[in-house]
Nucleic acid binder design. Structure first.
Length: 554
RNA sequence: CGGGGCGUAGCGCAGUCCGGUAGCGCACACGGUUCGGGACCGUGGGGUCGAAGGUUCAAAUCCUUUCGCCCCGACCA
């Protein structure tokens, strides 16, 4: 491909509204342009990258007997109504009506449609297993699109679905997908890990996420180097640091105007670990007091597992229910349901006295209050692994893929049933598995760049090699460049040649920005000795090779 | 949806407080000189100042409304 014939609008300066590195570099290097919030267009270079990634996805999906199909993105509402998601999902679904007034929506994902197809076509246990996949556009009216192509309202997703007759068979397809995903991300040159995740509203039991470490990520995972425990902090468990039990006599202390843990701990010259943080929430069954240690944050999702739906109490509610403002509430002196973090079972603490401007020192669990004990704190770095006791790390990550065991949630709702060996009618057992190609591209840039631009992993670079003939007015240079271009193309390589009549500096800058892994620089002086330079974009190493042999070095 | 910021030429910005001929750099076009890390000189084209309404002799600037984009948070099937 000739640079002069390709649309590569590079930018010297990044548009002001780009923040994430991958976003800035993709704009500057001419890979993408933004149409509106969360809507991006892929320009020739960007689309080549996506297609390279898609090719890898297809190879690895085919290798586990996945079959590529293509489903509509415009869906009739009825199918989503049958699984209950039409109502369960609120503003995030794009909805519309067709000309006859029929409710429709744009697909956020394709469990419903895939299952609908299976319900029509799979009748016997003999028809399974099946793994169907597509690389298809999804639409979600995101509350907050952000970070360039990392979180958009319209995006491509490789989504596959497995249909099986037993949990064991599902396990096998799940495992095959996990292995395929490892291969895919490895081939794409990413640093990544597989972690336990919260299935959320996908339903079903087990799920894992594939995470690429990057400061640009939106998720955090807790990791144990020793035993390999790794989980999204949304569900990670941890053992907090132990603290020495103080031998306090129980007493009320006057703490005027000291409301937060920070204020009271400063006032009493105690570290926050010696406090109980009391949080009043309103559940569907009335108010509940949640307790965590002063240095911890309440884990909403874990609390939900214990008490179901809940929301924080408003200030007025706190006063109505406990008779005192939020800064001075505690677990004693009332009959509220109490759910406390397990670590509070041991030790003596300071907590609110349920009396204005007073706290109590020397509170002990069981002696002074009764509670239901659960792990309801958010795991933090330097907490300890619940499995092996080693110190945990917490890392910021980009979610690049996920796998879910769906079970029969969708097949039951949509009557995707089959007859087993005994003529019994049973729901198909399903799994669903997603990967975002654009996120792979963005994560690759986040993990591989320098001050000059992108450094693509070879496997997903838009081209394998870029030839830079420095002086386009020199016929010897041009001839050498064209010869090399033909030779490399003949080898089956994707070659970009910067044939523009630009100064050398411009070509160097653009080449580094665009990030093709190898550059072959053809300069007049070297060429007089029959030499060209081969430059590694990542290491910046340059080796000189005879023109005649250059093709063997690529 | 809550909090914050920003909309002036393709991009980056100044001008807005304190109303008075719309500017700078880059990019673009033409001419010349240059030519291995985003060249230099000269000339030139390009803007309903996000939009609507209002105040005023006069609005990029003041007031009201509205739209868009970004960031933090909530949310994230």
């Amino acid at each position: 491909m000739l640079f002069s014939k390709m649309f590569i609008p590079t930018l010297r300066e990044a548009p002001a509204d780009a923040e994430a590195i991958s976003h800035i570099l993709m704009l500057r290097a001419g890979y993408v342009r933004q149409l509106a919030a969360g809507l991006y267009m892929y320009l020739p270079l960007g689309w080549r990258v996506i297609n390279k990634i898609n090719a890898i996805l297809k190879e690895e999906m085919d290798a586990i007997n996945g079959q590529e199909i293509s489903l509509p993105i415009l869906h009739p509402a009825e199918i989503w109504q049958q699984t209950g998601r039409w109502d369960a999902i609120r503003d995030e679904m794009f909805r519309l009506k067709d000309r006859t007034g029929r409710d429709m929506c744009l697909g956020m994902t394709h469990e419903e449609i895939m299952t609908w197809l299976a319900s029509r076509e799979i009748r016997s246990y003999r028809d399974m297993p099946q793994v169907w996949y597509q690389i298809q556009t999804k639409l979600r009216d995101e509350a907050r699109p952000k970070s360039g192509i990392l979180r958009t309202r319209e995006f491509l997703m490789k989504d596959s679905y497995s249909f099986d007759t037993s949990e064991e068979a599902l396990d096998k397809n799940y495992q095959l997908h996990a292995e395929a995903y490892h291969k895919i991300f490895k081939r794409c040159g990413l640093t990544f890990m597989m972690v336990e995740s919260d299935p959320g509203m996908m339903g079903g039991g087990v799920s894992h996420e594939f995470m690429a470490p990057s400061p640009a990520g939106e998720d955090e995972v807790a990791l144990c180097d020793k035993c390999g425990y790794s989980a999204n902090v949304e569900l990670a468990l941890s053992t907090p640091s132990q603290i020495e039990t103080k031998s306090w006599e129980k007493e009320e202390i006057h703490t005027p105007e000291k409301r937060t843990v920070k204020e009271v701990s400063n006032f009493l010259k105690l570290t926050p670990e010696y406090f109980i943080k009391s949080i009043l929430v309103i559940s569907d069954n009335g108010p509940v007091l949640a307790l965590v240690r002063g240095d911890q944050e309440l884990h909403e999702k874990n609390l939900s597992k214990v008490i179901g739906n809940h929301r924080p109490a408003q200030k007025i509610e706190v006063k109505e229910i406990l008779g005192v403002e939020a800064g001075f509430i505690g677990p004693i002196g009332h009959q509220l349901r109490i759910v406390a973090d397990t670590c509070l079972r041991e030790g003596a603490y300071v907590c609110g006295a349920n009396k204005p401007h007073y706290h109590i020192r020397g509170i002990k669990a069981e002696e002074d209050f009764a509670a239901e004990w659960h792990n309801i704190h958010i795991a933090r770095a330097r907490d300890f692994c619940v499995k092996c006791g080693n110190a945990l790390k917490v890392e910021r990550v980009i979610e690049i893929g996920n796998i879910f065991k769906l079970g029969t949630k969708y097949s039951s709702a949509l009557k995707a049933l089959y007859l087993d060996e005994n003529g019994q009618e049973k729901p198909i057992i399903m799994g669903s598995y997603g990967i975002g190609p654009a996120r792979i591209a963005a994560a690759a840039i986040e993990q591989n760049h320098d001050k000059d631009g992108i450094i693509w992993p070879k496997s997903i670079a838009p081209f394998d090699v870029e030839i830079l003939p420095l002086n386009m007015k020199d016929t010897v240079t041009i001839e050498a460049a064209e010869k090399l271009y033909r030779e490399l193309s003949k080898k089956g390589l994707d070659v970009l040649m910067d044939d523009r009549d630009e100064r050398a500096g411009v070509k160097f800058k653009d080449a580094d920005l665009i990030g093709i892994p190898l550059q072959i620089i053809i300069g007049e002086k070297n060429l007089k000795e029959g030499l060209v330079e081969i430059k590694n974009r990542k290491t910046k190493e340059i080796v000189k090779r005879p023109l005649e042999e250059a093709r063997f070095s690529v």
